[in-house]
Design a binder for these strands. Structure first.
Lengths: 153, 153
DNA sequence: TCTAATCAGTACCATTTTAGTCCCGATTCG
DNA sequence: CGAATCGGGACTAAAATGGTACTGATTAGA
């Protein structure tokens, strides 16, 4: 239904979790525990995020991961791209085998415009924003206030 | 890779094709021919689009389909929703079983903002726009500036 | 130097989703 | 009546997705 894959969704959660402890090195197990995701899944995600240069890894005892850059300089688009490759909502921007009518070119142009809006939107949200939601929306504010107590971890 | 399904992509092509002959009733075969898509596939798409009230069908000899409304009043969001259900990029807006930490609520809020921008963008593009691609990006820039307003707030 | 903790890489499997096809019934026109 | 055409659903094949397992490399510390 026009959505990112579940792994991408998880990746944003994992990244936000790491961002919540700036500078600290967290083990995969710690992150899996905190996010309630399966350990192998988290491990896989972190490898991918590592390849993309979004997190730094440390091997050996007391090893783990931390952000490669400050949270404010990492945005949603980078996370999505790390997991799913280049952002684009239709194939037709890439392969165009079946185009023959002028009408379809209009279609392609429109999708490209949509893609561009989406890309800008993803790029406009940083990890830091995800940690401190700058929102006025009702549902979100409710959810936030009900959890306010533990924020000082 | 963060994209709509191929069928949804096809649906926009089919709709644009129909919109190119306003008022005329086109048979599935004609549409399949014009769009270079397989006839059964087009048939399936048109059934779905019919359920969504986007096209009108006529049975019997010389039957076929035409738009249920003027092209300028049908937008991309409606076509996407007809094929894929409600627009939303993550599941977590709907089911929220695994939320326990404040960080994840920030994640959810951010995704909801992205969803909203995307939805606005899709809604801003009409079938008529797809037929006559407007070169200036007015609607889109509106959607964007709206997002920026929210994030910096 | 040995051991345990931890990440790295790869390959594999199960499930779900997606796409495409087909069939048969209903409707309409001539 | 019969041909053209849509309507609904079932079915299958293929692909993506998510999850798991296994083996190897690296490091800290006893």
């Amino acid at each position: 239904m026009l959505r990112v894959s579940r792994l991408t969704d998880y990746a944003t959660v994992v990244m936000t979790c790491i961002a919540a402890s700036p500078g600290e090195v967290l083990s995969t197990a710690q992150i899996a525990d905190a996010t309630h995701l399966e350990l192998p899944t988290v491990s896989k995600l972190l490898k991918t995020l590592g390849h993309a240069g979004l997190v730094e890894s440390f091997r050996g005892v007391n090893g783990g991961y931390r952000l490669a850059r400050p949270a404010s300089t990492i945005n949603l688009a980078e996370i999505v791209e790390a997991l799913e490759g280049p952002i684009g909502m239709t194939e037709c921007g890439v392969s165009e085998g079946q185009c023959d009518r002028e009408s379809q070119c209009g279609v392609r142009g429109s999708w490209q415009r949509i893609n561009s809006v989406l890309d800008d939107a993803l790029r406009a949200v940083s990890l830091a924003d995800m940690l401190h939601p700058p929102v006025h929306r009702t549902q979100v504010t409710v959810a936030l206030s009900e959890l306010k107590g533990r924020t000082t971890a």
